[in-house]
Design a protein around this nucleic acid. Sequence first.
DNA 1: ATTGCCTTTTACTAATCAGTAGCTTTTTTT
DNA 2: AAAAAAAGCTACTGATTAGTAAAAGGCAAT
Lengths: 206, 206
Amino acid sequence: MSIFSKLSFKDKTFKLREQAVLDATTTLLASKGFDLMTMDDVAGEVGISKPSLYKHFKSKEDLATEVMIQLLDDALTYLDGQEPTLTSRERLENLLEWALRKRLEGGLPFLPSGSPHVREILTKSLRYLTRAYKLHKQLGQIVDSAKEAGELRTDLPTDVILFSYYSRTCDPAVDYMQLYGHYSADAIVRHMLTITFEGIAGSARS
Amino acid sequence: MSIFSKLSFKDKTFKLREQAVLDATTTLLASKGFDLMTMDDVAGEVGISKPSLYKHFKSKEDLATEVMIQLLDDALTYLDGQEPTLTSRERLENLLEWALRKRLEGGLPFLPSGSPHVREILTKSLRYLTRAYKLHKQLGQIVDSAKEAGELRTDLPTDVILFSYYSRTCDPAVDYMQLYGHYSADAIVRHMLTITFEGIAGSARS
DNA sequence: ATTGCCTTTTACTAATCAGTAGCTTTTTTT
DNA sequence: AAAAAAAGCTACTGATTAGTAAAAGGCAAT
């Protein structure tokens, strides 16, 4: 019993700290990006030293990869927990809103878009790719049913819709609205949903 | 005469080389981004040495700023040269297409979106800000007339439309379409225009 | 050919940062 | 309480890169 509880306690604190590291990295990646974030930044933010950090993650690239994996897992969990009564379009809207709100709280790093360097790192991780593919496949099915239900354009290929959809989560327009337009989080989300689904011309011709 | 022609010739080669530097930097910024581009990269690409490079631009930040200024000037020139018979929406479409094609040829760096660091650099340059403001004002007028003509949604604020419009020029969806979807440049442009103006749902309800 | 001037380059400095070696402190075991 | 073990930290290394000082090279006028 003593060995078990001890090990389990140590394991617990270890895991807790690991999560703290991941959280701090998430925030730092979202604010500074991969290249400008230093391992000293991360260690300092968590309140540990750099060598301790390397007990958890063997490199900066590994750390960033784990953050992105966790993000994809969160997205998959969110998708999985959606009410089955929702229409396909509502599911897409809700997921995008979830991502945008996460981002507005400073918790959404978007590495794959940024630099080719980072994209290369991520495509080397099988664990990342597995999740990205799973999410892509699930969303593809949702887009297809939305098309069948007449909720999405059928003249756009499904992958084009998906690429565009992903891009809205890291759209710089969000920063501009926040920084120069002083819009509230709610207004930003509302406008982003309109723009994504209806475009800037949209129903103007009606 | 001899002194004049000499000076003018030297001036000419100097300017020519400066343009070569700007062109190389444009390509490098578009492909690697600011942080990963080194001054040795630029010098090597042009075929000169680093100290010669510093005869033209006093720092890396200065060089990147000049590239962005030139880009804005090009956009302003393009806007200025548009046929006056075009509708406002056509003008917006044409400019976006111009930017997208430029990007697909590898010649469109999009610094201001990337890192906050770079945004800070640019906002310190009065010459950059002047041009950005001028372009923003002109496009704002075009958007407003498009709204009046019923060519754009009136339920979106003009600045939100503009922020979104700018963001389409650096939309990662373009990379994804090119990299994973193997779409042609023409198809990418067509889809981006549809998505920008009509959204992914767009006329699906008709 | 030689002197003087201007340009270009080689070879450096200083700073930053990922990753680590080895010492110190705390905790655990007996 | 003492010995052993584990965890964490200070202080380093090596590599990269922005920016520069001083040598090398070219070109004009005489």
